[in-house]
Write a protein that binds this DNA or RNA. Structure first.
Lengths: 239, 239
DNA sequence: ACCTGAACACCGTTCAAGT
DNA sequence: ACCTGAACACCGTTCAAGT
């Protein structure tokens, strides 16, 4: 037996404000917001206790009054980044609501491309915004012929797909993916032909390795296709 | 226009062995293997240029003769970790083959729980073992009424789901998830009730927050359910 | 009780030097 | 050409000290 993770009580504001001593000049919200600014601007790798503190005009060590570890700060950032979008879901709406819900999750990841880089922690699900997002999805699933674990699996899988494709998009944007010179590609195609006939065929037709430069739409289509498949398959998976 | 990423040519052994100078006393394979040992033993966070070199009996800087950056080493590790399992897939086998394929991907992630932590790079798809895995899945999909992008989406989504659930499993194992004291849970349930009625209901029935200690089987069931739904929904998503 | 300054034990990566 | 030693500019986190 043990208590709630400390960061959960922080995020839900379940901790009593300490009464004694000098007034606090920082706050979890301010620290989290500053860290998100850094991550949005320069990537998660640039999120440093020193850099966050500097942006707030404080010393690095001042942060440790509010956060006991950098991992805790990352959890706060991740939860703040999935703050509820403008999304209304009808109770029992089903597939159409879930599709819009997945799009909202994806939008959050697009707005904060570093989200997928934050190490997953089992605590995440108990954080307020994550819980609210889950709640919306469960609302859409209400009344459907699925067990509770099946509903949770649906929610997890959908958010997993949304996060996954958003991260694919991020990784493509990160490496500018200039078109690869066909001459440079030749030895690679040769190696492929030997052990990967099906991939080699796709590569030859230009559908595997991107030889034409940036190409945004296909990730969108693949995401839409995957979500559509998952949603369409729910009834038969439940049998 | 530019050439193949350097790490791709390394992984496919497309670089000419340098002839002149002292014989090389290290190799990419040895370095990658040592790094994987470190990651398996102590987690990806413990993978340090210094620690890898030490395990091999070399100086840290010796590694930079073989790898131009730590990110490159991580790519080599990730690809080596998905080395082909003992998996036969019939051409055009369809759903049953894809399910076993997804299980194989998941097994790789279970054997190397740090896999999901390796930052995704667009280069990954061109690495040899990744390509071979993709090839197997395409083999199972051959002849099905799906376009090439739809087939790739299926492969991506399946591997995404396998990786996702393996990472969920890892994160649960990382935080020992002792049962949470009901008394400590009470204020959390109270907060939930206000903004998350559906999640609160699940929590009350013990299906959301784990209040009973370790619980492996539900991740397995949720993974199986998600994959089943995705596979079952393929035909209707393709229409 | 907050916040600071100095310090510790690390990182990845560079560069000139040895062989 | 390989490999080493020393150095650089960082990290997260600690601890004692100020207010």
């Amino acid at each position: 037996m043990n208590g709630l993770p400390r960061v959960v009580t922080i995020a839900w504001c379940l901790t009593d404000a300490s009464a004694r001593g000098p007034a606090r000049r920082l706050s979890h919200a301010a620290i989290t917001a500053a860290a998100i600014e850094v991550a949005d601007d320069q990537g998660l790798g640039a999120v440093t206790m020193a850099r966050v503190a500097q942006r707030l005009g404080f010393t690095t060590m001042a942060l440790y009054r509010y956060v006991s570890t950098k991992a805790e700060l990352l959890l706060l950032m991740a939860d703040a980044a999935v703050a509820l979008p403008d999304l209304k879901v009808e109770r029992g709406e089903g597939a159409s609501g879930l599709r819009r819900w997945a799009d909202a999750v994806r939008d959050a990841h697009r707005a904060h491309p570093w989200l997928a880089e934050v190490p997953r922690a089992s605590t995440s699900a108990m954080m307020p915004n994550s819980a609210r997002m889950t709640d919306l999805a469960l609302r859409a699933l209400d009344g459907l012929p699925l067990t509770a674990p099946e509903k949770l699996a649906t929610v997890l899988a959908l958010s997993g797909l949304a996060a996954f494709y958003a991260d694919v998009e991020r990784s493509m944007a990160a490496e500018p993916t200039e078109a690869i010179d066909p001459d440079a590609l030749a030895p690679f195609v040769g190696a492929l032909a030997a052990s990967c006939p099906d991939v080699a065929a796709l590569t030859a037709s230009g559908e595997f390795v991107n030889t034409t430069g940036a190409d945004d739409s296909w990730v969108e289509q693949q995401y839409a296709f995957s979500v559509a498949a998952l949603l369409a398959g729910l009834p038969s998976a439940a049998e």
